[in-house]
């Protein structure tokens, strides 16, 4: 039996409730969500979010994420210097967690999304099954990058005035949170069905319906 795509028959599956209806209806008869054959302007929007997150990745890593005030005067920490100090202290596991969550995952996620966008635009070739796996992975791990933002917030709340030293959040914290949110938006606007469209020879990447 020949497998046909829903889009080829003018059918769209609702992105909220999964019901398949003719795209001509405009809205899903079950949940009233808007019907689209593909996510509207998927690639353009993914590129936009990606470029914004790449731009913010630099201040997020170069500026201090927090400043610890102690007897020896204030000391600023970037993400990387925090990782290194954990490594020196012998906390290899924590160093690895922070390095993976804050530095590795954002970079790999951006590279993965760039590759997915290029593949969906027909610029590179890979099996759609592997690309789908890659997409799943980017969706799964992206949120864990937020861990450093929470760590700083927790330290700021716990270590303040008095006998304790003080911790002040640095300017990188906002750019870092923005990088995580933007890459999540980028992954959400990407439509993995475009990869299969490319594979089967249909091009629906600028479908606006």
């Amino acid at each position: 039996m020949e497998i046909r795509s829903a889009a080829a028959q003018g059918l769209a599956s609702c992105h909220l409730c999964g019901k398949v209806s003719p795209v001509a209806l405009g809205n899903c008869p079950r949940c009233h969500g808007a019907l689209h054959l593909r996510k509207p302007r998927s690639l353009e929007r993914t590129w936009c979010f990606l470029l914004a997150s790449i731009a913010l990745y630099f201040p997020a890593n170069l500026m201090p994420i927090m400043t610890v005030g102690g007897i020896g005067g204030p000391e600023s920490d970037t993400i990387m210097s925090g990782v290194i100090s954990f490594w020196r202290k012998g906390d290899l596991l924590v160093a690895a967690i922070i390095f993976a969550a804050s530095i590795l995952i954002p970079i790999l996620k951006m590279l993965a999304l760039i590759w997915l966008c290029l593949a969906a635009a027909g610029k590179t070739h890979a099996s759609p099954k592997n690309l789908a796996r890659l997409y799943h992975l980017t969706e799964l791990v992206g949120r864990w990058s937020m861990v450093d933002v929470f760590v700083v917030a927790i330290l700021v709340a716990l270590v303040q005035v008095g006998a304790l030293s003080t911790v002040v959040p640095g300017p990188a914290i906002l750019s870092f949170a923005a990088v995580v949110v933007l890459t999540m938006f980028a992954a959400m606007s990407f439509d993995p069905r475009l990869l299969w469209d490319r594979h089967t020879g249909a091009d629906l990447s600028d479908t606006h319906e």
Binding site: L11, S13, R193, L195
Partner: peptide, 13 residues
């Protein structure tokens, strides 16, 4: 019987 479309490859089945 109802039909579903795969969210990843859009195959109607």
């Amino acid at each position: 019987p109802i039909q579903v479309a795969c969210p990843f490859c859009d195959a109607l089945q």
